[in-house]
Computed example of a mutant assay.
Amino acid sequence: MLDAVLITVSVTALLLAAWCGFAAYRDQPTNDWHFIAMAVVTAAALVQLVIAIVQLARGERPQHGMAVFLPYLLGAAVTIPAAAFMSLAERTRWGSAIVAAGGVVLAVLELRLNEIWGAGHG
């Protein structure tokens, strides 16, 4: 896994979480700008997914096993889209809170992906 991509996904996810958390604090639902930001974070996670697939196809393997790595990788790719759909169903401040929680969850998944792949492994 490329550290730059992992850091990019983590930072954008945390920025999204902070922004949507602030919207929830201000009693605001998600808006179009939030969805644009969710698309950016999702795009970064999809880039990570593609890079990981390429690395796996080249024969590189996570230090702690494929059976653990692949579900985390797929989970990271779908976390923000799932939060986006849930926020559409909940058009109150809680929709923003859901996306904020999704951003935090994605950042934690990124930390775990780094551990599973093996720090300094690629």
Rank of each mutant, 00 (worst) to 15 (best):
64 H>Q: 14
21 G>D: 05
64 H>I: 00
34 H>G: 15
14 L>R: 01
41 V>H: 00
17 A>I: 03
55 Q>D: 15
42 T>K: 10
75 G>C: 04
85 F>W: 15
104 V>K: 00
62 P>H: 04
108 V>A: 05
11 V>Q: 11
109 L>Y: 11
87 S>H: 07
106 L>R: 00
51 I>K: 01
39 A>H: 10
18 A>E: 12
76 A>W: 00
41 V>R: 04
29 P>Q: 15
78 V>K: 07
43 A>D: 07
103 G>N: 04
38 M>W: 04
9 V>C: 14
28 Q>V: 07
13 A>V: 02
114 N>H: 14
108 V>W: 05
118 G>Y: 03
50 V>G: 07
78 V>S: 08
46 L>S: 02
92 T>K: 10
110 E>R: 07
11 V>C: 02
118 G>D: 11
49 L>E: 08
113 L>P: 06
11 V>Y: 08
42 T>M: 03
2 L>Q: 12
58 R>I: 07
59 G>E: 06
13 A>G: 03
12 T>A: 13
7 I>M: 02
3 D>G: 05
45 A>R: 02
36 I>A: 08
12 T>V: 13
29 P>M: 14
93 R>V: 01
94 W>N: 12
36 I>C: 06
56 L>V: 06
32 D>A: 15
101 A>P: 12
95 G>Q: 09
41 V>S: 00
4 A>H: 15
79 T>I: 07
58 R>Q: 15
39 A>K: 12
34 H>D: 15
1 M>K: 02
122 G>Q: 12
26 R>D: 13
97 A>Y: 00
47 V>K: 11
29 P>F: 11
83 A>D: 04
89 A>M: 09
32 D>P: 04
22 F>I: 04
103 G>C: 04
73 L>N: 09
89 A>H: 05
34 H>F: 05
18 A>I: 13
112 R>W: 03
55 Q>G: 11
41 V>T: 06
88 L>V: 12
38 M>N: 09
19 W>Q: 11
51 I>L: 14
4 A>V: 13
90 E>I: 15
94 W>L: 03
96 S>E: 02
76 A>H: 01
84 A>C: 02
42 T>F: 12
81 P>D: 01
62 P>R: 01
92 T>V: 03
68 V>L: 14
49 L>F: 12
84 A>I: 00
102 G>A: 07
50 V>M: 09
62 P>G: 06
61 R>N: 05
76 A>G: 08
41 V>D: 01
60 E>V: 01
110 E>G: 10
85 F>Y: 15
41 V>Q: 05
86 M>E: 10
117 W>Y: 11
60 E>L: 03
78 V>E: 03
64 H>G: 01
71 P>T: 09
117 W>P: 00
56 L>E: 04
97 A>D: 06
27 D>S: 06
21 G>H: 08
90 E>M: 12
